[in-house]
């Protein structure tokens, strides 16, 4: 059995080639961030100048900071709403769960561009026609737009986690005279915790990534990083875009590593982790 058949060799070569394909543009971006030149596409010489832009250019710094802030708040909102909904679906099943899952399905299959063009006039209605000043705030608008898909993801994750572990522990807790709030806090929440943490970090990265909805709902003054890049696309891409992207990539990888670590601690296999990260 040591002899490798030709089909196995072809399969391995194909696998390696596809991985090279997957990493090609990312490597190009990382290399480009060390380009000292005016334009991203034309290489001049090696240097760290473009990384200084993060400190020297307030527009870039502000955009990154807006993205981080929005990502954090959107992740908190999505995790809170999604966790409660996931627990409700897993522990209090009934006909309503199908309606709710149907709504989540609709949220996850609606193209982002449709959410974007729908939220734009709706926020105008809420903020200007109805005069609710809250909805004119840039961060609030971004958080709303970024949270929609994340609420669905966190709900799926938490539900999947709790459905896998039946409610006997909660019943035992109730039999031992724990009041419902105590059972919720000391039994249900710890059970759901790995999914909650994974959901939080996924929501954060999804929000950092969001370009389409952000481009539509943003107001001037609170431009998040991807929208800044999108507008730079029209005026000419400079190496500092690559540099900041490299920094953001490192941050995202750290967040991803944390998710994988948390899930592995909770006893998931590689396949479980893949399923969780794949959003279902």
């Amino acid at each position: 059995m040591k002899q490798r058949s030709w089909s196995d060799v072809v399969l391995s070569v194909w696998g390696v080639l596809v991985f090279v394909f997957l990493f090609a543009p990312i490597l190009v971006i990382i290399v480009s961030s060390f380009n000292v030149g005016r334009l991203l596409v034309s290489w001049q010489s090696f240097g760290f100048d473009s990384f200084l832009a993060l400190f020297e250019k307030p527009a870039i710094r502000d955009a990154v900071w807006i993205s981080v802030q929005t990502g954090f708040i959107a992740a908190v909102v999505a995790t809170l709403l999604g966790t409660l909904a996931g627990i409700a679906m897993a522990r209090h099943p009934g006909k309503w769960v199908w309606w709710f899952l149907g709504l989540l399905l609709l949220v996850s299959v609606t193209p982002e561009i449709v959410d974007a063009v729908a939220l734009l006039p709706w926020l105008v209605v809420l903020g200007q026609d109805l005069g609710i000043g809250l909805f004119n705030d840039g961060i609030v608008r971004l958080v709303i737009g970024h949270s929609l898909f994340s609420v669905a993801v966190v709900s799926y994750l938490v539900r999947a986690r709790l459905v896998g572990q039946e409610g006997q522990l909660e019943e035992a807790s109730a039999d031992l005279y724990a009041k419902p709030p105590a059972t919720f806090r000391r039994v249900t929440l710890p059970l759901a915790m790995p999914a909650v943490l994974a959901g939080f970090l996924l929501s954060f990265t999804l929000s950092l990534d969001n370009t389409v909805i952000a481009a539509f709902v943003q107001v001037s003054g609170t431009t998040p990083w991807p929208v800044y890049v999108l507008s730079a696309l029209r005026s000419g891409l400079r190496p500092e875009i690559a540099a900041v992207s490299t920094i953001m990539l490192v941050l995202t990888l750290i967040a991803l590593g944390l998710v994988a670590y948390v899930l592995r601690r909770a006893g998931d296999s590689a396949a479980d982790i893949a399923r969780t990260m794949g959003g279902g």
Binding site: L22, I26, P226, I241, S245, L249, T252, L253, M277
Partner: peptide, 9 residues
């Protein structure tokens, strides 16, 4: 890794 790298970038 590419899945979670910024789509636009």
């Amino acid at each position: 890794v590419p899945f979670w790298t910024n789509f636009l970038v």
